[in-house]
């Protein structure tokens, strides 16, 4: 690996920008995610920044058990994030649909629709755990950036026109 590639790898690891996506969450995990960015936990030390637009983001943080309405939105947002990208499923809901299992309004879990890289279990997970998950996702991101986007890591999803 030459020097430039190693530099890019380091930069990807040190600068994960998040996009927060709620797919029908009860707001518990969302509060914890915001708490992780608050002065008490200060995720900015790792270079984390919460971005408003998925175009700017590297990591998509999905909370909630993926309701039927949210599926197309999740796919659109995932398609709008540019390569390399990673997905974190925050809380038990996107991993297993949690207590909402067998509900007819759900289309979860998340992994049925987009590939998930890191699961942060908990109902809700603690901010420390979320920060650890982000750090792990940033490492995955740094490795993934070395390879061109393949069909498995980035399946074709419909792209929203700007």
């Amino acid at each position: 690996m030459n020097l430039w590639k190693r530099l890019i790898c380091t930069c990807r690891r040190r600068s994960p920008w998040l996009f927060h996506m709620n797919s029908g969450s009860c707001n518990g995990c969302d509060i914890e995610l915001v708490a992780a960015l608050s002065p008490r936990y200060d995720a900015e030390q790792l270079g984390v920044r919460l971005e408003g637009s998925p175009r700017h983001a590297d990591i998509v943080c999905v909370t909630g058990p993926v309701t039927r309405n949210a599926v197309s939105a999740i796919k659109t947002v995932y398609g709008q994030v540019c390569h390399p990208k990673a997905v974190i499923a925050i809380g038990s809901c996107p991993a297993t649909t949690n207590v909402f299992i067998d509900s007819r309004t759900l289309a979860g879990p998340l992994e049925k629709h987009i590939p998930v890289d890191v699961f942060v279990p908990g109902c809700p997970p603690r901010p420390d755990a979320i920060i650890q998950g982000v750090a792990k996702a940033a490492e995955i991101l740094a490795e993934r950036g070395m390879k061109p986007p393949d069909a498995e890591s980035a399946p074709a999803v419909e792209e929203a026109q700007p």
């Binding site: 930069c11 990807r12 040190r14 920008w17 900015e44 030390q45 270079g47 920044r49 540019c82």
Partner: peptide, 17 residues
Amino acid sequence: PPFMQPFFDFVKLLAKN
């Protein structure tokens, strides 16, 4: 953020699609 943060951000964005 660490001292080199804007530089990290810049290089990372340069290497993105």
